[in-house]
Write a protein that binds this DNA or RNA. Structure first.
Lengths: 351, 351
DNA sequence: CTGTTAGCGCTTTCAA
DNA sequence: TTGAAAGCGCTAACAG
């Protein structure tokens, strides 16, 4: 603490050491050599900077250039979500690749903290804002801010708002097609609706109905006999629903495949199947949804599922919001990213 | 874009409107009224600031005061971890409560990116650094930086380094005591060792051996017959190990309880039990470890487990590092936080 | 092609 | 008790 080796080296120090002006240093380091700085001088400056271990002072630069190269992320729950982190990490990585950094504010699903979070981010002079929700929702109004915003894992009534979200319908359709292709004729979906009185962290989530409707439509199209059991999203919900669908039902009427609203529900279904002595996928095929980390791929057997594009959402969100912040016109203001099928071992032809 | 309602209001504007100097404004707003500004003037300034909607410019303030009120968090995986987010969210919230904000850099478990991440954070002039690892590890050297650092979910050889990490041994002991108190005499632990050739994201994780050793010691102390099966941390590992422990073993020799290294392994054990027609907790009690979100509490039946103190680690890490940054002497430089028992329905007396 | 100069918006020493 | 003035470290007009 006593003897700091040497004080910070500033642009002025580099200038002095290289025998040029601070301007030249600034130009050289920012590649603003639009015909005004000689290659030789530039080389010397760069070398001197290197030798002195010069690091531009980010804060000073921000003050002057009125841009902080930072992006605010406000979310209702990076935490509680099993995959929120995936979106965040992808966004952080993408941001980093263009010299930006993510400032994170978690509102813990408390609406009253949202405004405060945005406000704080504005005070911090972030260049842009990403608003990520845990469940896929449709916002009736965009977050209040003058900053460019993109909505991630949610969208808005107003089609002009920038947003990236999962194409749940596509995913559910893929699931049914996979099963139909395998030859299944009786499929039961373990669905889950948005419960307006449900847990806060899932309020307004509309993935449930979207997945169900797409599933039903696809089943009709492929002439597959489809049944829906409304339940919840968690392991025990999947267990209960699967029991309803399977227990005591004669083999001839029993569904030969189950499409679960989440991987967790699918796991519950696996538990039910095990309890009932049903082999997966021999007696029963199971498809999940989410491709949840350390869950789908580690299930017994590994779960065939529909992957939620969290990483891509994070990346696209950053790309879009940066483009908007740069004043570019962004095409495709609403981006529905496909939820792709991941085939593993929990599905097979019925026997 | 054309007509910005009105330009930013600066401290000077407030000063002008209130008929005082910028100095007075600064003093009033920072409560630096150590006997130099009259209450009346201060009130007028505050009121004027309020009326004009004045917001101090954070960047300018940082430049001048040489402190950014921000904390860098570098982690090897907020993403891949099922609970990394919990630590992050708690840290973010705690930071926020003192006007700090978290800057996140995820290295995706690539060591070569760590230095770059720290460097970037330093360039950003963060006041302090938190280094969070996904699995509990012991670092042989601290991250290279002149900033105050606290290690979260890991610790260092050098006892002077600040760190917060889970007391795995305590947790494993609690688990066995719970089972012993219930009357179990034969308990099998589904353990998992650090595999030096294992997946990157779990390298160096020492929770496995710690939990196992503590479990064994506690069993000895309580005269419980303990067996350990070495396996892995995931669902399928738990399934396989549980099968080994249970399948074909006569009831009289079979363990009456299983202690799994993770909730995921516990879930695998539940799957195995279901497959073997064993009732949980009637025929078999199961205790997990982690208290993983949407997993332990939603299992069938809800899983008795040992909770990892991720939220507390996040909070303590922020508190410690801020104290260190403020130049305070920090007691308890190494903090092992207890992993507490959460009793749910997967455990009962043996029958 | 290069250097001088004037700030960005705030804090804080120092003098009034 | 208050205010003038000098920067923090950098960038970008504008002259030279």
């Amino acid at each position: 603490m006593a003897n700091q080796p040497r004080r910070r080296v500033r642009a002025a120090d580099v200038a002095a050491a290289a025998g040029v002006s601070p301007t030249a240093v600034s130009f050289a380091l920012n590649n603003r050599d639009s015909g005004n700085i000689s290659p030789e001088t530039k080389r010397r400056i760069l070398e001197t900077a290197e030798r002195l271990g010069y690091e531009p002072h980010h804060v000073a630069r921000s003050l002057r250039s009125r841009t902080t190269h930072s992006i605010g992320l406000v979310t209702d729950a990076v935490a509680s979500s099993p995959f929120g982190g995936r979106l965040l990490a992808a966004a952080a990585e993408r941001a980093e690749s263009t010299g930006h950094i993510m400032l994170v504010m978690d509102t813990h699903s408390r609406d009253d903290r949202e405004a405060a979070a945005i406000h704080e981010l504005e005070r911090r002079q972030v260049d842009a804002l990403i608003y990520a929700s845990m469940g896929f929702r449709v916002l009736s109004s965009r977050p209040t801010t003058h900053l460019p915003v993109v909505l991630a894992n949610c969208t808005a009534d107003n089609p002009d708002e920038l947003s990236v979200f999962p194409d749940d319908a596509y995913g559910a359709t893929r699931a049914l097609h996979h099963l139909a292709d395998l030859g299944h004729q009786r499929v039961t979906m373990l669905s889950g609706n948005w419960d307006p009185l449900g847990p806060r962290d899932n309020q307004g989530n509309i993935s449930g109905p979207i997945r169900r409707d797409a599933f039903l439509a696809a089943a009709r199209e492929r002439s597959v006999q489809a049944t829906v059991i409304e339940g919840g999203w968690d392991i025990h919900d999947g267990y209960r629903s699967a029991m309803t669908a399977l227990d005591g039902v004669p083999a001839g009427q029993r569904p030969t495949a189950i499409f679960a609203i989440t991987d967790r529900a699918a796991l519950g279904a696996m538990l039910a199947a095990a309890r009932l002595g049903l082999d997966v996928p021999g007696d029963l095929s199971i498809v999940g949804f989410d491709d949840q980390e350390k869950m789908a791929e580690c299930a017994v057997p590994p779960l065939t599922t529909i992957a939620l594009p969290h990483a891509r959402m994070g990346e696209e969100a950053v790309a879009m919001v940066l483009a908007a912040a740069a004043g570019e016109t962004v095409e495709d203001r609403r981006r529905a990213l496909p939820c792709e099928l991941v085939v593993r071992e929990s599905t097979a032809p019925p026997r």
